[in-house]
Nucleic acid binder design. Structure first.
Length: 194
DNA sequence: TTCCCGATTGTA
DNA sequence: ACAATCGGGAAC
């Protein structure tokens, strides 16, 4: 029997447990212009028991990917303007996912600067919409597909992140369940959102 | 079918 | 502080 990988173990957990563990993991995507890689520095957990979650009112066509098993992508259009990317976690039938809010550019920085029309690397992916723009996500077509080399890949941290380097706070931009401390970010990182 | 509003961002 | 912009989902 195949032993599960570090990433698979994280993605099997409930979103609020997976979210802090995804800090330090890397997102990787191959594009025509070259490879892009970023290190995740900020996440938020969403769960069907949580009034702020898209899945709180049950399964719909849009949110169906969140009910898939861990390892699926959930991408949606925010405010009719920006795309946001989530990584689904947990068991099939449970609507939960981790929103990737911010990341540090690592590989393909010039490609991301072009995608964002922005040179300051601290302003490349310091927000969920900016992150998707940096990655070249311009539609929801990848929503519902699995993470992997052909879509968007998720790799274990290059260096271990100590648990005391991760801060938890209430989530940003929501109007329900505002006190739940389900936002996580890398302490002192200049790449987190504002 | 209508209507309200949002897991945001860039500009004034 | 505020507009841009559009699809989801509840209500009628």
């Amino acid at each position: 029997m195949k032993t599960s990988t570090y990433i698979e173990e994280i993605l099997a957990k409930p979103a609020e447990l997976a979210a802090p563990l995804l800090i330090g993991c890397r997102l990787r995507r191959s594009t025509a212009a070259g490879d892009i890689e970023l290190q995740i520095v900020e996440t938020e957990a969403y769960h069907q028991s949580d009034p702020a979650s898209h899945t709180f009112r049950g399964l719909t066509k849009r949110t169906a990917p969140m009910f898939e098993p861990g390892g699926v992508l959930y991408i949606y259009l925010s405010y009719g303007v920006h795309y946001c990317m989530n990584i689904v976690t947990g068991q099939a039938g449970v609507g939960e996912a981790v929103l990737i809010r911010a990341a540090m550019p690592v590989v393909g920085v010039d490609i991301m600067q072009r995608n964002r029309n922005q040179t300051d690397i601290r302003n490349i992916a310091n927000g969920p919409g900016k992150l998707c723009q940096a990655l070249g996500i311009t539609s929801t077509e990848l929503s519902g597909s699995k993470i992997g080399p052909k879509t968007i890949n998720l790799l274990a941290p290059a260096e271990k992140i100590e648990i005391n380097q991760i801060v938890s706070t209430p989530r940003i931009g929501i109007t329900k369940a505002v006190d739940l401390p389900w936002r996580f970010y890398l302490k002192n990182s200049p790449f987190v959102s504002k």
